[in-house]
Design a protein around this nucleic acid. Structure first.
Length: 305
RNA sequence: GCUGAGGUGGCGGAGUGGACAAACGCACGAGACUGUAAAUCUCGCGGCCGAAAGGCCUACAUAGGUUCGAAUCCUGUCCUCAGCA
């Protein structure tokens, strides 16, 4: 079975650095699993790290005016991973977008069911109760299996309806995306909250120093709308309030840092229930060596199979 | 010193006699997650008991008072801010 190394964990834990380090040791190439680095012209704010002597795939896939999705991401990774394997190198998936990693590692069965714009348009008027009611009529099983949070989440309800409609219209066809199975090693990076907070704050300050403000200006100048999916990213989104004069610069920066911290928390909620992840605390000395040891063991053992 | 406004939970801020442990927002905590995922959404958030229903206690600067009943009315005290001296 082909190998896939995954490095996940909350923002600002140094995933890419570790990825680069391991790529050099194990003849690997990195694939970014980051839903924001896919946008062109958003370099500083999303923390792209070029030129580290290792090939990094997954940056600059689309224009920031475009819509992106897990589906597109998975199509991209399928191609790219095959390509890396063909060259007999190790694919290293590195990133903080849990759903994207899940898609690659475990597959998402309904991912190839396309969006239905017309349907979505028609559904915008409905509130969550009505949406849920509607879903129940189309697919009572799905409706019944939703948890109390998703039942009140319009976005999820709309998609569930979309999937249900598709299934009705295409009952013959099967369109499963099971994903390819890999011999996967999952490495997770964490840090104590106060350590992480300092790192986050510093990183935000660095990004501003590197010219984040100009980057945002270029984006709006080239016609990217504040409401575009890409601009809903951390930092850009908080910058809007400053750019529009609603808040002063310092508050925007503080807000950005705060949201970044909250995001790290959400990321941990996603991963901490996955027992397959091997966790490492990046505030501990020599952690990279210990990861390397683990990877080495996995790398050599599976080669024999 | 005088006059006016005001002191509510970690914060902002509602409430002006009963449905108040106190709207709403923020922060905080816990979670969800199958084509927007750096997105979106849910729950909790004075204390104690309880699985829950619910119960008990302490609370709206502070000390008293009026009332069946007060964060809401009255009085004293202490603070804060604004205007005048």
């Amino acid at each position: 079975m082909n190998k896939l190394l995954v490095i996940c964990g909350p923002t600002a834990t140094g995933k890419t650095s570790l990825g680069v380090y391991l790529a050099k040791k194990f003849n690997g190439e990195i694939i970014s699993a980051d839903s924001r680095q896919v946008y062109k012209n958003m370099d500083i704010g999303t923390g792209k790290e070029w030129g580290k002597g290792v090939k990094i795939w997954g940056y600059d896939l689309v224009s920031p005016k475009e819509e992106f999705s897990v589906s597109r991401y998975l199509k991209f990774t399928q191609r790219t991973i095959s390509d890396i394997e063909r060259r007999a190198r190790l694919p290293i998936l590195v990133g903080g977008t849990g759903l994207y990693i899940k898609g690659v590692v475990d597959g998402i069965p309904t991912v190839n069911i396309p969006r239905n714009k017309k349907l979505r348009q028609n559904l915008t008027e409905m509130d969550t109760t009505q949406l849920y009611e509607h879903l129940s009529q189309l697919d009572s099983f799905k409706a019944g299996s939703m948890n109390s949070s998703d039942k009140k989440n319009p976005r999820r309800l709309v998609r569930a309806i979309e999937v249900a409609m598709w299934n009705i219209d295409n009952s013959r066809k099967k369109n499963p995306h099971t994903g390819k199975s890999f011999d996967t090693l999952l490495v997770g990076l964490t840090a104590p909250p106060d350590f992480l907070e300092k790192k986050i704050n510093k990183r935000v300050d660095d990004r501003i120093k590197k010219g984040f403000e100009d980057e945002v200006k270029k984006l709006t100048d080239m016609g990217v709308d504040w409401n575009d999916q890409s601009m809903m990213s951390l930092g850009y989104r908080q910058w809007r309030d400053y750019a529009e004069g609603a808040v002063d610069r310092d508050s925007a920066v503080d807000e950005w840092k705060k949201e970044e911290r909250k995001y790290a928390g959400r990321q941990m909620v996603w991963w901490k229930k996955d027992p397959r992840i091997n966790w490492f605390d990046v505030s501990e000395a020599e952690y990279q060596k210990r990861v390397e040891k683990l990877v080495k063991k996995w790398y050599t053992v599976s080669h024999a199979t």
